[in-house]
Each structure stands twice: as C-alpha cells, then as structure tokens.
Design a protein around this nucleic acid. Structure first.
Lengths: 181, 181
DNA sequence: GTCTATAAGGCGATAGAC
DNA sequence: GTCTATCGCCTTATAGAC
C-alpha cells in the first residue's frame, strides 16, 4: 500500500529544501520528481509556504513541550543536564533530525515565516532557561553553545565516517561539559 | 568625495544578501537603493554571482593565510590556542565580520558557488588542523566547536545588550576552554 | 558610466475539464 | 485527485543610444 500523495510531497519537499534551499527549489521540480503536475500540489497545499508550515508544525510543538517541562523544574545544574539530554534525544529521532537540518539551512530564506519566527523565539527562550539571571557572559555563551553542539556534531564529523551512535555520544559529552563552565 | 559606484554596490549587496538572503535579493532592489538602474550594475559586475565572488575573495585569502601559518607550526596545544586567537582577531575586523555573517546565512543558497566551496574546504581543513590524528571523537567535536563558538557568540547574546568587547572576551574564553577537552 | 528598452524564461498560483 | 492551459508577475541578462 503506497503512501498518500500529501506525505510524499512533504518528503520530497523536505529533502530538496534542505539540500538546495527553499528558494532554489521550485514546485515544478517537486512535482516532476513525484511524477505529477504542479497543479496537483495545489490540491494538497494552499501555497508553497503552506508546505513549510506543515513540515515544521510538529517541531514547534516539541519545543513548546520541552519549554513547559523545563519551566516546571527548579533551575538547577541537574535540570540543565536533563534538558540537554532530552534535547539530544529529540534530535535523535530521525523525523525531528530531518526537520532540524532543514531549519538550520533555511533560517535566512524563511526569516519571515510565522512558524519559523515562533520556533526561533522558543529556541531563545530555551537557551535563556539554561542561564540563571546572575550568569556571566562567559557562562551564557557556554550554556547556549551546549544546545548548539548537539546540532553541529553531525556535519563537523562527517569526514571521519564514524558510526552515528559514536557521534551522538561525543556531541552529548561536549554539550554536558559546556554546562560546567 | 563620494565612493565609487562599484564599492557602493558591494556595500548594499552585502547588507541585503545578509539580511534577506541572496536569492530573495534582486538586482532591481539593489539598483533602486543606489538610485541607478539594473543595467548600471552590469557595467560593474558580469553577473549576480560575480558580486558575491568579489565580496568573498578576501575572506578566502585570509583563511588560506591562516591555514598556511598553522601548517608551518608544530601541532601543539600552544599552536591551537594561538590559532583560535588569530581567528578571533580576524573576525573582530569589521569587514571580515560582515563577510562572515553573510557566509553563515547563505551556505545553502550559495552551496554551488566556486569560491564558497573553497571557503568551506579551507574551514574544514582548518578544523582538522586542530585535531591530532589520534584524537577521540569527543576531542574532535570539542576542538571544531571552538572555532564555531567565535561565530555564534554574536547572535547568542544579542538580547543581553552587552558591550561588543565583553561578548568578544566571553566567546574567546569559551573557545579556549573547548581546546582543553 | 549610465540610460531605455527588451529579450527570454521561470515562478507561484488559478480556472475549469475530467 | 489529477490534468491541461494559462495568467500575471518578476527575474537575470543583453543591445545599443547617449
């Protein structure tokens, strides 16, 4: 039983938006790869932007859940540690990982997209939850970079051809170490 | 005595490419801001890509100089430390800083641009110069992230409204600390 | 060195048949 | 749910006058 068209559009769009960028990917391209016409796409999605919205919605919800959780906790080193581990676990999920890569690579092109604006805001809120109000600039940079380390590892070690699991472990280790600044 | 048109084109293009992205910025826009017509732009630059090339050339040369320097040195902690400080000093220069931001934000859109491909290659080479061949994955991630920290600090702390100098100091501190993994 | 005018083509999006 | 056909707009880029 073959997937429905809507899902296939999302898959192709996500891959091409990630690899070539949102603006450089035309709806004609996507349609051709799927063996349908552009017009068929418009039956499933109102606009090109709407495809993006459908892609990133779940990521926004995930971030909001994480934010709600961390705010229900005392601001302790233990909470920070667990936040980093939960964030890493989210990224480990292949669906979220794909979305996260798409987001990294289209920050500028999609800077005005409503859902992406919210995602950016939630990310900044998450980062600020990592720092106590009295934290020094050095601590702030270090804590913020912790979440970032989890994203960066994937492409930093791409030449080493290490098993996915080992890269995962290394990035989490570095991230946790950044919390001890 | 007003700057020549070629330089003004570069300034406007750099700003708009950085803020809105390369693809989202049309030559018409740039021309209008300068009070000339599109055709005038084509007198100074062969293509839109050519404007980018003129912008990033110096950054490539700077990276190649840095690479040459680090390769002339023994692979010691002291060399790594000095590399991070030299890299930070480069970024401190306002011209390179502007170019670096432009590069960060247009990685995907300009992934096929010849000069940007070279810049990416040099960056990866620089990163691999930071790691000895026997380094663990954790060390590799940590060292690589050191150079990255220098870029990231600027927008990570943008809400704190700290003086530029203090942000600079904090990022360098975190970067150096990442070298002690 | 800058202009007007235009070529040539791709884009997102829509109407209406089937 | 997918098609054909097309609209209107914007783009990069060029030719040739001044």
């Amino acid at each position: 039983m073959r997937e429905d068209t809507r899902t296939r559009i999302q898959e192709v769009a996500l891959r091409r938006f990630t690899e070539q960028g949102y603006e450089a990917t035309s709806l004609r391209e996507i349609a051709e790869e799927l063996g349908v016409t552009k017009a068929a796409l418009y039956y499933h999605f109102k606009t090109k932007d709407d495809i993006v919205a459908s892609l990133v919605e779940k990521r926004l919800i995930e971030l909001e859940k994480l934010l709600e959780w961390v705010r229900s906790r005392p601001k302790t080193p233990e909470t920070r540690r667990e936040l980093v581990e939960r964030y890493a676990a989210d990224l480990r999920d292949s669906r979220h990982h794909g979305i996260a890569r798409f987001l990294e690579r289209n920050q500028t092109a999609l800077r005005d997209h409503p859902t992406l604006i919210k995602i950016r805001e939630r990310m900044m809120e998450l980062i600020s939850e990592l720092s106590e109000s009295g934290a020094t600039p050095t601590e702030r940079v270090s804590y913020s970079l912790a979440l970032f380390a989890l994203h960066a590892g994937k492409w930093l070690l791409k030449e080493d051809e290490l098993p996915e699991e080992e890269i995962q472990k290394a990035t989490v280790e570095v991230a946790l170490r950044l919390l001890d600044a």
